[in-house]
Amino acid sequence: MSDKTVVPVGVRPSTDIDYRPNRSAPYRARVRWFDPVSKRRMSLSEGKHDEDQARQWLRAIIEAAEAGLSPSLATMKLADYSEANMSLAVRGLELRTHDPYLSGWRQRVVPALGHLPVRMITNGAVDRTVQNWIADEHSRSTVKNTIAVLVRVMEQAVRDGLIKVNPARVTGWQKLYKQPSEWPVPPHDANPHGPGRPVSSASPTRRRPGPPRQALDLSIEGQRVLRAVVSRRRRSGS
């Protein structure tokens, strides 16, 4: 699809969806409009796998026309958009941050969201993607850097007029990381040492009855004193 094909601003195009069986993408979405400059009837179409995809494509074209965007920019996938605009998205960052940011983009963002058009990426889609990264046991810093570069790319899309709100600004994901001290302890593993102290799975939860440690220590000390007294008396002949 070429950028030369532009639906003029202010012109209301007509749309239709045609079902063509025996095609790999049987739903053809088509948009047509009258060009006021050339006085010609123009059209643009694309095949989709189902009717919902066709309707979404048409909606993106209509919204792009209202915003003065070309169809190719309106339907550009995130992977393609980032390839063309990543240098703008990361401008101003220190060079040492480029490698972790771009690595996160290639290894996590593109496989998860790169196939989606920029205008169709929602906050919910990003939120679920972040949860999947955490479930895959990526570290907190890795997820943080990956979200940061996604936010920057989507912010560039806001500046370009593709979207109005940045959907990558997700919150609350840090709470999904729990420290060991925050893990719940089952009732049968209750800590006998009191709160805030570690529980060892090898330690018994009950202790066998016996004399207190202090009483045992005093008994030993008393025996030592008693032996000393007896020894002195024997030496004195008393």
Score class of each variant (00 low, 15 high):
residue 147 I to M: 04
residue 130 V to I: 15
residue 176 L to W: 06
residue 140 R to V: 01
residue 153 V to W: 04
residue 103 S to G: 13
residue 136 D to I: 00
residue 147 I to T: 02
residue 172 G to D: 07
residue 181 S to F: 11
residue 160 D to N: 09
residue 109 V to C: 15
residue 133 W to S: 03
residue 127 D to M: 02
residue 120 M to L: 10
residue 112 A to Q: 12
residue 152 R to N: 00
residue 99 D to N: 13
residue 164 K to C: 00
residue 163 I to M: 08
residue 169 R to P: 00
residue 138 H to M: 03
residue 104 G to Q: 13
residue 125 A to Q: 11
residue 142 T to H: 04
residue 176 L to D: 11
residue 128 R to L: 05
residue 172 G to H: 09
residue 110 V to Q: 13
residue 109 V to Y: 09
residue 149 V to P: 07
residue 176 L to T: 00
residue 128 R to N: 11
residue 153 V to P: 05
residue 123 N to E: 02
residue 153 V to K: 04
residue 131 Q to A: 08
residue 153 V to Q: 05
residue 158 V to F: 07
residue 136 D to R: 14
residue 105 W to E: 06
residue 141 S to R: 13
residue 178 K to A: 08
residue 122 T to L: 03
residue 160 D to M: 03
residue 142 T to F: 02
residue 118 V to D: 07
residue 144 K to P: 00
residue 100 P to H: 09
residue 167 P to S: 11
residue 176 L to H: 12
residue 134 I to W: 06
residue 155 E to H: 09
residue 169 R to F: 00
residue 108 R to F: 02
residue 185 V to D: 09
residue 145 N to Q: 10
residue 117 P to C: 08
residue 111 P to V: 01
residue 145 N to C: 03
residue 126 V to W: 11
residue 149 V to S: 01
residue 122 T to P: 08
residue 163 I to G: 12
residue 118 V to A: 10
residue 169 R to D: 03
residue 152 R to M: 09
residue 155 E to F: 03
residue 150 L to Q: 03
residue 159 R to Q: 04
residue 103 S to C: 08
